[in-house]
Each structure stands twice: as structure tokens, then as C-alpha cells.
């Protein structure tokens, strides 16, 4: 029970996939132009991560070691295709905003990384918890980064104006350079928090 709780929470900060492990950087930078885009991407990737962790933990004994990577990729690509079709049908605006980064969830290294490093070695329950935990960490990072850029770049959060009408938005923040600068500051910030709480390791 204690292990499962640890699997669920480690992704938030201590093993945050983006800020600490530096995985899944492309979608993080590309879709964090607003909090809602970040949330959409986070949920889509979490769904794929949890489902592929589940399937891989179930079939791990049947998969021959030498061809495991192609098999993992096919499992992941299947769930990505499901996600892509569902999003195109039910959330067309979000699907359009995220663009090619939805099919590119396939090559998001968080997902293959967790399949290889965790789900192929642990039981189903723990793999599910790991998927949820890591997915939450990824989503949280994307939403925070998206909100940060949205506040500075357009003065809104989730589309609601928070900075007042006199605020001059810094367009740069929602352009590509803003993504790099914000993520750089965010990684430094997460290190600072880890150092303060003494959880660095």
C-alpha cells in the first residue's frame, strides 16, 4: 500500500517527468501557450500513459525480450490513434490547437520510458499507479507552464481575464522564445524547492 502511494505521488515533484527527468520536452514547450492547451495535452498523454502501462504490465510475460520495444510502440501507437480520433470528434478546437503534437504522443519519451523502466518490471496495480502519478506530474507541469505563459502573454488564465484592462500583454511569452525562457526558470524553481525541502537525490 505504501509503495502504491509512493508511485502515485513521486511524479509530482521528486521524479517529475519534465522538470527533473527532462522527458517529454517537445510537447511541453509546444502546447503550453495557454493553460487549457496544456491541460488538454496533459490529459491526452496521461490517458495513453495509463492505458499503455496497464496493457504492457499485463502482457509483459508474453513478450520476448528482444522485440519488446517494437511491441511497446505498437501498443502505445494504438492508444494514441484512439485518442486522436476521439479528440478530433469531441474537442475539434483543442484537437486543432494541439495539431501534430497529438500523433507525436507516440514518441513522447515519458511513455516509452515508463513502459520500459516500470511497467515491464512491475505488477498491474503498481504500473497503473505509476502511470497516473507520472501523468499527473506531466499535466501539472503543462498547466502551470501554460498558465504562466498565458498570464504574461495574453493576461488571461483559462480564457478568463485576470490582469485587468490596463495590462499590456508581453506577446513574446506565447511565442517560441517565451516557452524556452519559462521552462528554464521553472526547472530552476523546481530545483530550488527540492533543495529547500531536502528531497534532492
Amino acid at each position: 500500500m505504501k509503495m502504491i502511494l509512493k508511485d502515485l505521488t513521486k511524479g509530482t515533484l521528486i521524479e517529475n517527468p519534465v522538470l527533473v527527468l527532462a522527458l517529454g520536452l517537445c510537447p511541453t514547450l509546444a502546447v503550453s501557450t495557454s493553460a487549457i492547451n496544456g491541460l488538454g495535452m496533459g490529459i491526452a498523454a496521461t490517458f495513453v500513459l495509463v492505458m499503455s502501462n496497464l496493457i504492457i504490465a499485463l502482457i509483459k510475460k508474453l513478450v520476448p525480450g528482444r522485440i519488446r520495444i517494437p511491441i511497446f510502440i505498437v501498443v502505445i501507437a494504438t492508444f494514441v490513434t484512439i485518442t486522436k480520433l476521439v479528440m478530433a470528434a469531441y474537442t475539434p478546437a483543442l484537437s486543432k490547437a494541439l495539431g501534430i503534437f497529438i500523433p507525436l504522443i507516440v514518441v513522447n519519451c515519458i511513455i516509452l520510458g515508463r513502459a520500459e523502466a516500470f511497467a515491464s518490471k512491475h505488477n498491474v496495480i503498481r504500473s497503473l499507479a505509476d502511470g497516473i502519478g507520472m501523468g499527473f506530474g506531466f499535466t501539472l507541469t503543462l498547466v502551470l507552464l501554460g498558465a504562466f505563459r498565458e498570464i504574461l502573454g495574453s493576461g488571461t488564465v483559462f480564457g478568463a481575464n485576470v490582469m485587468g484592462s490596463s495590462f499590456q500583454p508581453a506577446l513574446l511569452m506565447i511565442l517560441p522564445p517565451g516557452a524556452f525562457l519559462s521552462l528554464g526558470l521553472m526547472v530552476a524553481g523546481s530545483r530550488w524547492i527540492l533543495e529547500k525541502t531536502g528531497k534532492e537525490g
Partner: peptide, 21 residues
């Protein structure tokens, strides 16, 4: 110290990206 490695790499990329803009 806090900026060593990844964070400073991102800041540099940001500046390069600004130039490419």
C-alpha cells in the same frame, strides 16, 4: 548553481529562438 545544466540550456535556446524570430 540552480541554473547549471538544463535551465541555462533552455534560457540560451530562448535567446536563440528570439534571434530566429
Amino acid at each position: 548553481k540552480l541554473m547549471k545544466g538544463l535551465p541555462i540550456a533552455f534560457i540560451i535556446s530562448g535567446l536563440m529562438s528570439m534571434a530566429f524570430l
